[in-house]
Amino acid sequence: MLEIRWHSRAGQGAVTGAKGLADVVANTGKYVQAFAFYGSAKRGAAMTAYNRVDDKPILNHEKYMRPDYVLVIDPALTYTADITANEKEDTKYIITTHLSKDELIKSQPKLENKDVYVVDCMKISLDTIGRAIPNAPMLGALIKVSGMFDLEYFQNAMKRVLSKFPQKIIDANMAAIERAYNEVK
């Protein structure tokens, strides 16, 4: 079982990202789960979303998770949220930041000696989509880091997930995915 935890602010699209990923994965014949922790907090509050992926039906409904991937899509949450909670030895971190990996680890020492990847999802989403919705670029980065799918397959699958949106938005999302795929380090 593969487990993924998203750290986000409500409104940044972590739930949509988690569900979009689940949608793509489900169509490869795998079983998926996508959920989030909700409170009564409104837009802007820190929140977490989750994915599980497995080859057999997923029966586990606990919220507790030892993530294989931690995806941080808001730069500030690296410092304010407990992003290393319940980590495993080989948990991979993909973090939205304008900093280099070294600068990031220096600014947040608890990431030292961990498998950390950086990508500026905020800038990418602003450049491509025109709004700070960093979920799509994070998916591009995840695909690259995990090797789960090749880029073209994933983009085509995402086009289907997004099919109810106008072409302009689909194109922008594709561009965001591709840039993050290429830029994540």
Binding site: A18, K19, A22, A26, Y31, V32, Q33, A34, F35, A36, Y38, P57, I58, H61, K63
Partner: peptide, 12 residues
């Protein structure tokens, strides 16, 4: 169905 745990959890 369980609120959130099922109602807001996407699965196949």
């Amino acid at each position: 169905q369980d609120g959130f745990i099922c109602s807001h959890t996407a699965q196949n």
